[in-house]
Design a protein around this nucleic acid. Structure first.
Length: 649
RNA sequence: GGGUCCGUGGCGCAGACUGGAUAGCGCGUUGGCCUUCUAAGUCAAUGGUCGAGGGUUCAAAUCCCUCCGGACCCGCCA
């Protein structure tokens, strides 16, 4: 049983079932719904489906069920009424229900809403931003979703481990490291970087990819022109134009660093070859390559930890791709094992997995809703290095050894490789394990006007969004609460600004694309973290003014009889079920929805029902308990979103 | 071209998995409420053929089909 509302629901269900059995009607499938209007009760049962089955009149059946309720000894069920064309509406017994709810919340405190659960081990991999640029607003969405999901699962009694996968073996990291080597290698990050080092690395990476792209495109254009392929050349020229404008943007930021990288790239006979060589050396654990690339990754991760720490996101494990998949021979072993299955082919020196053949062989088409041919997956390059998905297969096997269920929070862009990963598991004869793996996908954050691109250095960073949010919050706090000390205003604006950003990213369903605007991400009005935090602060304020005397004093729960008190009580009672449901359906945004609605209900109560000036001590104490319960639940709900609840603001 | 996801008042969203009573909320616009606990609040007004068209059903924003629009993917990138 999870909370008073679940108990009320249970009583209603038993009531309906008992009535149906007495009438000789089928009572297996009794599901209750929330009426569209609170005046119609807290739960309802619709009799249409049943009426059809037994060829009866829905209205008459509803009446008979309602009549059967009279005389029953129900604890939390008050009134039961037949209504409309075929509904039975259930109302709570206000006094008993309020008492039960308030006792539950005050006993359980910060544990109210959590459940014991089954202790299933769930590994949530999230954020996993490539260590070649700072976390941008798209990565922030991943981080916030993954963190909220972890919190919700934990509250539902799961044994959650949060993992960050460091993709240090990729071509991109080698490219960034190649650029870094023009600046003097890993020492350059330590000394040269002003500001956050992940930002510096982002600049190095963008500069390197820009320089390499310009050089490669120029070569291609010359070749195409010489071959008389003017049409193709024209397309490449357009691409080149884009990169030339990127180079101007980068030079404007730091011309010296950019020019050194550009010079280095142009001085090389074969930059692509050098990057590939560096990757190859890293995969074979060559000390100089390791020192360079790890130096770069460490600097980026230091920046990530700082940013994530600011928003309250921490990890239980930082998994290096090199260690979980590459240096331990995991990825190579995956290639060998897959090669033995007969599903791979050798094409120009590369090893390719025939995904389509696996899909056919194991009948996966229907299982995964595959309607088209699945493209083959290259497992190994002709130079013997592995590809990302190959290493991800090895990493997945590593994860399976550490959890019952694995959830990967990865953007929708990687839908196909994540499917290919599952297909590879089937090929390995691990079809059952594939069921334990889930790609939790989310849509991208778009920028108005242009697309974010790490390679081009075009992104809005999480850091700048947070900074702007906290500054706006500071202006707001200063304007509204000038009496607070500077230090307290700073502290509050940090909590409010960070909360606003987290809420904005957590509240939108993951499968909806977001177009970034400042006003959207930093909102202090209704349906925002500050709105909810404000309700919490108001509740705290009443309690501060009330002192401590009320806690042991006599209480008259029957005083909580107004519409606003009743709705607030019911809202509070639903929290445990909301948490369970959010965990079951993996939808943390339902917590945001709930918290917002609870704050709205509390504001209505606050504006309409006097607490400290209530008539009678019993009523005042009952309301104080209700305020205290609201404070606790608002704080618990915000905690699931990773948002702090200030006592003043 | 193929596939997947999304489409709900001017704008931003909830409701869809599990069909149910007059489709909720915020922003915006207009007009009220601070000598009762913090006005980041609240009240009222305004505004919707739930992308279009079919189908299933006693009942469809919700399920099915077709179409339109947008995003994403279809690499020896990740």
């Amino acid at each position: 049983m999870s909370g008073p509302f679940a108990e009320f629901r249970d009583e209603c269900t038993r009531l309906v079932k008992a009535a149906l059995e007495r009438e000789g009607m089928p009572a297996e499938d009794v599901r209750l719904a929330t009426p569209s209007d609170p005046s119609l009760g807290e739960l309802s049962f619709s009799t249409f489906a049943l009426a059809k089955k037994v060829r009866g009149d829905p209205r008459a059946i509803a009446s008979r069920i309602a009549a059967a309720a009279h005389g029953g000894a129900w604890r939390l069920v008050g009134k039961v009424e037949a209504a409309g064309a075929g509904y039975v509406n259930f109302y709570i017994e206000p006094k008993a229900f309020a008492e039960e709810l308030i006792r539950s919340v005050s006993t359980e405190g910060s544990g109210y809403g959590t459940s014991r659960g089954d202790g299933e081990k769930v590994l949530v991999e999230h954020t996993s931003v490539n260590p070649i640029h700072p976390i941008h607003i798209g990565g922030a969405r991943n981080a916030v979703i993954g963190d909220c999901l972890s919190r919700v699962l934990k509250a539902a009694g799961k044994d959650v481990r949060r993992h960050f996968y460091i993709d240090d073996v990729g071509l991109q990291v080698s490219q960034a490291a190649y650029g870094l080597s023009m600046l003097g290698g890993e020492e350059a990050v330590r000394s040269a970087a002003k500001g956050k080092r992940d930002h510096f690395i982002g600049f190095v990476y963008a500069s390197t990819s820009c320089a390499m792209n310009i050089r490669a495109l120029k070569g291609e254009i010359e070749r195409l022109k010489a071959e008389g392929k003017d049409e193709e050349a024209r397309l490449k020229i357009r691409e080149l134009d884009d990169w030339v404008s990127v180079s101007a943007e980068l030079r404007e930021k730091d011309a010296e660093t950019f020019d050194r990288i550009l010079g280095g790239v142009n001085a090389s006979a074969d930059p692509e070859g050098e990057v590939a060589e560096l990757l190859k050396r890293y995969e074979s654990k060559d000390p100089a390559a390791v020192s360079l690339i790890r130096g770069l990754c460490d600097a980026a991760l230091e920046g990530f930890r700082e940013t994530l720490g600011r928003v309250g996101i921490v990890f239980d494990s930082w998994d290096w791709e090199s260690e979980t998949a590459s240096w331990n021979g995991g990825a190579k072993e995956v290639v060998e094992r897959l090669s033995r299955t007969g599903f791979t082919k050798l094409e120009d020196g590369t090893v390719v997995l025939d995904c389509e053949a696996v899909v056919e062989r194991f009948g996966l088409r229907e299982k995964y809703g595959i309607k088209t041919e699945v493209p083959p997956l290259t497992l190994m390059r002709s130079d013997g290095t592995t590809l990302y998905t190959t290493r991800d297969i090895a990493y997945t096997l590593w994860k399976f050894g550490r959890a019952d269920r694995v959830i990967n929070v990865i953007s929708i862009e990687q839908k196909l490789p994540q499917l290919q990963l599952k297909i590879a598991l089937h090929a390995l004869g691990m079809g059952d394990d594939a069921e334990r793996l889930m790609h939790y996908s989310y849509e991208l954050v778009h920028l108005p006007g242009y697309k974010m691109s790490g390679r081009r250095g075009r992104y809005v960073t999480f850091d700048e969004v947070l900074e702007e949010a906290v500054q706006r919050a500071y202006r707001e706090v200063t304007e509204r609460s000038p009496h607070l000390s500077e230090e307290e205003r700073r502290r509050i604006s940090e909590v409010v600004g960070v909360g606003a950003v987290r809420y904005a990213l957590a509240a939108v369903a993951p499968q909806k694309p977001i177009t970034f605007t400042w006003d959207r991400v930093i909102n202090f009005e209704q349906n925002s973290a500050p709105f909810i935090q404000y309700a919490h602060a108001r509740a705290c304020n009443i309690l501060v003014k009330a002192g401590e005397g009320w806690r042991g004093a006599a209480v008259d729960y029957s005083a909580l009889c107004s519409k606003h008190e009743r709705e607030l009580v019911i809202m509070l009672s639903k929290f445990p079920e909301v948490v369970e449901e959010a965990a079951r359906s993996l939808r943390p945004e339902e917590i945001a929805e709930y918290a917002n609605e609870l704050a709205s209900k509390f504001n209505l109560f606050y504006d309409n029902v006097p607490v400290l000036k209530a008539e009678g001590e019993g009523a005042k104490n009952a309301r104080l308990r209700l305020v205290d319960s609201t404070r606790i639940v608002l704080s618990n709900a915000l905690a699931l979103l990773g948002v702090k609840a200030p006592e003043r603001m």
